[in-house]
Amino acid sequence: MLNINIEMDMASEILKLLGHETRLTMLKILDDHDCCVCEFVEIFQATQPAISQHIRKLKDSGLIKEERRGQWIFYSLNKEYEHYDFLIKLLNLLPCQNEKLKKLELNGTRIQCN
């Protein structure tokens, strides 16, 4: 079992970020897959600026990191994040979201950003 020690104010800040269903779902997806903005746009049927705002908040907090691959930027969980163990413990309580990416693949709408 993980030994997780976190200050109340930091736990509150993380939980505020996770309090939005879109950001929470994004993090759960990123627990298993790296994704780019265009994939999240398709998954959530949201505008690129709206998705970018969510990503900015997650990135600014340190919860996710970005990696450039050619002309694309992919996002993943930041395993170096100071409170990664706390985040993972929370994400492990949630249902898998892999079906969202599988649905895009089946519909032929998954964006291939490679």
Score class of each variant (00 low, 15 high):
residue 48 Q to I: 14
residue 64 I to A: 01
residue 32 D to A: 10
residue 27 L to C: 08
residue 71 Q to D: 12
residue 15 L to A: 00
residue 4 I to Q: 09
residue 7 E to F: 15
residue 15 L to T: 02
residue 21 E to F: 08
residue 50 A to D: 04
residue 68 R to P: 00
residue 47 T to S: 15
residue 48 Q to H: 13
residue 62 G to D: 09
residue 24 L to P: 03
residue 38 C to G: 05
residue 30 L to M: 15
residue 68 R to Q: 12
residue 77 L to G: 02
residue 51 I to F: 06
residue 17 L to V: 03
residue 67 E to V: 12
residue 50 A to N: 09
residue 6 I to T: 03
residue 57 K to H: 11
residue 25 T to K: 14
residue 18 L to H: 03
residue 25 T to N: 13
residue 79 K to T: 11
residue 38 C to Q: 12
residue 44 F to M: 08
residue 38 C to T: 12
residue 69 R to K: 14
residue 11 A to L: 10
residue 69 R to C: 03
residue 52 S to M: 14
residue 43 I to G: 00
residue 78 N to Y: 11
residue 48 Q to S: 13
residue 59 K to N: 14
residue 79 K to S: 08
residue 57 K to I: 05
residue 54 H to W: 06
residue 20 H to Q: 07
residue 34 D to I: 05
residue 19 G to S: 09
residue 42 E to K: 15
residue 27 L to Q: 03
residue 71 Q to K: 15
residue 60 D to T: 09
residue 62 G to T: 10
residue 66 E to W: 03
residue 6 I to C: 03
residue 26 M to R: 03
residue 26 M to I: 15
residue 77 L to K: 04
residue 10 M to H: 05
residue 7 E to S: 15
residue 68 R to S: 06
residue 17 L to H: 01
residue 11 A to Y: 06
residue 20 H to C: 01
residue 4 I to F: 12
residue 74 F to C: 07
residue 38 C to A: 15
residue 71 Q to L: 14
residue 18 L to T: 02
residue 25 T to E: 12
